[in-house]
Design a binder for these strands. Sequence first.
DNA 1: GTACCCATGTAATCAGTTACATGATTCC
DNA 2: GGAATCATGTAACTGATTACATGGGTAC
Lengths: 178, 178
Amino acid sequence: MSLRHAVLGLLAGGPASGYDLLRTFDVSLANVWPATQSQLYGELGKLEKSGLVTVAAEGPRGRKEYAITPEGRSELHHWLTEVEPTQVRRSDMLLRVFFLSQLERDEALTYLRRQAELAAERHERLTALGKSVAQGEDPLSVYGRIAMEWGLRLSATQREWAEWAQEQLTGRQPPAAS
Amino acid sequence: MSLRHAVLGLLAGGPASGYDLLRTFDVSLANVWPATQSQLYGELGKLEKSGLVTVAAEGPRGRKEYAITPEGRSELHHWLTEVEPTQVRRSDMLLRVFFLSQLERDEALTYLRRQAELAAERHERLTALGKSVAQGEDPLSVYGRIAMEWGLRLSATQREWAEWAQEQLTGRQPPAAS
DNA sequence: GTACCCATGTAATCAGTTACATGATTCC
DNA sequence: GGAATCATGTAACTGATTACATGGGTAC
């Protein structure tokens, strides 16, 4: 049930239309909580029905600008401070590791090498993204940087782990990365 | 579509009933790919229809023992070696970080402190679990240890990150952990 | 006027969760 | 005989994805 809170969180920063929100989801929330267009419009409808958001204005082309209500803010606050995050589960990357014993050792090594590679690529993409984003001192960029740092640390950890795992299988160092 | 591959992977290690598989899911795959009873029985039915598994034997109480077929093995191999793992997305823990600017600084700090704490607890649970599990040299325990190591590194990373994030907000060290 | 973007909505399908329902066997 | 465990299945619902459908406004 986090999509509704993602929407509330975005609307807490100012009113927006479904279309606006969709772009925000695609750009800034894509790696954390992706949402499709149909899902978004559906959720906005439900949020309005339950009084957590309202249609603040209507524009051209049937545009509806949504704004968060006090009830919406209160629900957001409750979710932020009192609801424990659910543990991230379901990694098909890790699921495969459980079954690597079904492969030849070389195939298993290739798999782990690929995971290190993918993690390194993700790390590079994030680094590039970080450089392109303005580094300010305002609250939003502080928290943006914190979220970004998570991605960096996560991808670094995955790479180190996958390299360590290769060593476990070979008993020696994996080929040095670039 | 990974549940089917999880089932194939387990059956690749030997025939089992839905009930057997369910226990394995609850015990060893719970943190990687949880599955419910109804989901499992449904999937086994579908796998049988598509010829990836067969009912090898029927026992008392309507027990059906499933075995993987050559086609099933081939599908498993394909999934292991040629299908790229999907990126793990959707972390409501991280989603909240994007909206911490809606909270008072103290509330945000409490949130981050709690995330460090949860990560530390998870790390301890895994360490305890690791000690209780036999440490052999057979392929299964090698890969089991590799998967376990991922969990350890992930929780350590989360803890370090959450502590670092607190420092970003305070400009000083967070209180030393136990 | 036509291509592109803005803008919203619905329908079908799939994966996953929770709850309900039933019954056989084994252990004590 | 009663409780625990083995064992399978179905139904209702929620969340998410993909595809379909439509039309207004703007830039050139």
